[in-house]
Design a protein around this nucleic acid. Structure first.
Lengths: 260, 260
DNA sequence: CGTCTGGTTGATACGACTCAAATTTGGTGG
DNA sequence: CCACCAAATTTGAGTCGTATCAACCAGACG
């Protein structure tokens, strides 16, 4: 008998929690009940092909999206054709809590890889938060961390050199993947092209290429075939001036821990 | 007899609401009752001298801050001494809804001018939102706009030239001040030094200086004695590739309008 | 096998930085 | 009211990091 891997019951029973739960538990641990509620909210599933938009600038937002598998990015384009990736989503990330308050999207969300997302209705979100204060707290934490990351990107673009900037971005993504158990021993999937990296760091792809070579030469990373290996995380954080406090991954809500 | 809310004569006669109310009413108009609740939440007042911190990185956040008067900035510093202003606050802006969920501030908030802020306790916020769903909606809108601005800054730093970047920042601030009636006929107070502008745009103050001169030479702005005059807003938005949709100032919540 | 996307290399150009000094402005006290 | 000082702005000369443009190469795919 085969059991489908993304069956919520399966996950709850056999232990491998979905990425959201892992992510939110970096803030506070959750009761079995709350974990189940979070898992079962992901019933309305949609797949998006790599390089297609999940939602585009100008669209009316109808759902909260939750990334179950794959990577996505939020991007904005300028009339002169320039494009900036303003954030990246990895499994366990909500795209936009409460977006549906707004009339129109002011940016697009595109799939980097083939993407599996849950589409959650305002009503579902409403009843989740109404019934589960602890989950609500955790979602607030998620929101605050998301903005904190956005601010760190602002700092990254404004003050760090190309070399530091790339080192910082790679480190951040590694740590975020690690938090949802998608990284190990300094290694993780890394589906971004050098072009994506360029759009995310405000550099050209040519310069990204040369700078990655420098990082490799300095024995900080290996990066090929969509696999990233951070060879020396400590030194990497050093050169990137990486201060992990903005990720707030340190179980800051542990005083709320569930009696579970 | 009904009077339109944004009729200047009405305001002159009846006196004007505090900046928060003006700001939130860019989203949805509020009942007298809700307006009063918002005004009266600002009872615990604190003054901060220009160039002093309101709260510093590492501090435990205890209050939600609301800027009543003056300008402030959120900034982050790097171990090598570089500093990035990641956001600016003008009257009517909340500094951080819900921050107190986090253990430590990952950035500092500093006063640009002498500052008058309301310090709101978590409890006060809680009862405000518990009793007033419409205000809660408006606060959510405030939050979403704040993040949208942060994303636009990311785009600004990543893709716009110095000239476009400064034009964009000046335009944004002008429009934000306009929304709380602190601007008129293209003119507004503008207390930022060229150094502040440099820290906010990721440029050096020398280059900011030269670029401002260009903007003046092109008859786009006047800027002296802490007064900004945008001489041609339309052309300014053009050169800055300024798309105002991210500010969501267009009464997007008008379907919720109070007693209207 | 041809095509396409992503990665790599080289030569050259330019926008923004650095450093250093001069000038103006605004505030303060005599 | 003026003299003084610190902060902010302005100017100049020289340099550097990153962009631009144009090829070329490798692997994936149909």
């Amino acid at each position: 008998m085969r059991v489908k891997r993304d069956d919520a019951a399966y996950r709850c029973y056999f232990g491998s929690d979905p990425a959201v739960v892992l992510k939110l538990e970096a803030f506070t641990s959750l009761s079995k009940d709350n974990r189940a509620a979070l898992s079962s909210i992901s019933r309305n599933i949609r797949y998006v092909d790599a390089r297609r938009d999940l939602i585009s600038e100008g669209d009316k937002p109808r759902f909260v999206h939750l990334v179950l598998d794959g990577w996505a990015c939020r991007y904005k384009t300028l009339p002169d054709g320039k494009r900036q990736i303003v954030s990246l989503f990895v499994p366990g990330d909500f795209c936009d809590l409460n977006v549906y308050i707004l009339r129109h999207m002011d940016h697009s969300i595109g799939a980097i890889t083939r993407l599996k997302v849950a589409m959650i209705t305002p009503d579902e979100m409403g009843s989740l938060t109404a019934e589960r204060p602890r989950v609500t707290q955790a979602l607030w934490w998620h929101e605050l961390v998301t903005v904190a990351i956005q601010r760190e990107w602002t700092l990254n673009l404004g003050q760090r050199s190309a070399y530091e900037r790339l080192a910082h971005l790679l480190t951040e993504l590694y740590l975020r993947l690690d938090a949802v158990r998608r990284a190990r021993d300094g290694r993780c999937d890394f589906p971004l092209t050098q072009n994506d990296l360029a759009d995310a760091t405000g550099l050209t792809s040519v310069h990204v290429n040369r700078t990655l070579q420098e990082l490799r030469r300095d024995a900080l990373i290996e990066l090929e075939r969509k696999q990233l290996h951070i060879r020396d995380l400590k030194r990497m954080m050093d050169v990137a001036m990486f201060n992990p406090n903005y990720l707030h991954l340190d179980h800051e809500g542990r005083h709320l821990n569930a009696n579970s």
